[in-house]
């Protein structure tokens, strides 16, 4: 190699590093991957939020049928935004389980009364005990749990039609996104 071209070496090193960081950059630094992907649902048991509708516990999520677990709260704006998507999923026959997170039970009940209740079971996690076991850091958060009770996917923030179509539905169908 021509020794005179050696001065280009630092430039090349820089370009290489910049390229590596560019490729490896997280697409959204606020999007923290869940530590529970491909792990069984944590052990938890939550009291029912609504009279006549059961609460939610670990055993309810290993029924042989995949399900969505949605953490929501009445005080959470994005939860209202995503709610119509949950209602549509319920109409499409998806098993939805709800957890009212850090919410006053009356407020959470009113939220579901006003906007519709898409859930088969709703647990109340007022003091975030189950939430911490799930690694929740905000609402809304939605988990795809397969029939064996293993967490396959977590979405933090409101569900969008694109995520439902591209990731959630394929996972529920038992495939890979």
């Amino acid at each position: 190699m021509n020794r005179r071209l050696l001065f280009l070496l630092p430039v090349l090193v820089f370009a290489g590093l910049a390229g590596a960081f560019w490729v490896g950059r997280p697409r959204d630094p606020r999007r923290v991957p869940s530590a529970l992907i491909d792990k069984p649902v944590p052990s938890f048991a939550l009291a029912p939020l609504i009279d006549g509708k059961p609460g939610l516990a670990t055993a309810d999520l290993a029924t042989g049928k995949p399900a969505l677990v949605n953490f929501f709260a009445s005080w959470c704006g994005p939860c209202r935004v995503e709610h119509p998507i949950l209602m549509r999923l319920q109409r499409d026959g998806v098993a939805l389980q709800g957890i009212a997170w850090k919410d006053a039970p009356d407020d959470a009940r009113k939220f579901l009364r006003d906007l519709g209740d898409p859930f088969q079971r709703v647990g109340i996690d007022r003091d975030n005990r189950a939430g911490i076991d799930w690694g929740v850091y905000g609402v809304p958060e939605t988990y795809v749990v397969d029939g064996k009770g293993v967490i396959r996917f977590r979405h933090a923030g409101p569900l969008t039609p694109e995520i439902v179509r591209d990731v959630v539905m394929p996972l529920l169908a038992g495939g890979k996104p």
Binding site: V32, A35, I132, W134
Partner: peptide
Amino acid sequence: LQQRYGDF
């Protein structure tokens, strides 16, 4: 906490 929230 690491088990629940990862290395982050």
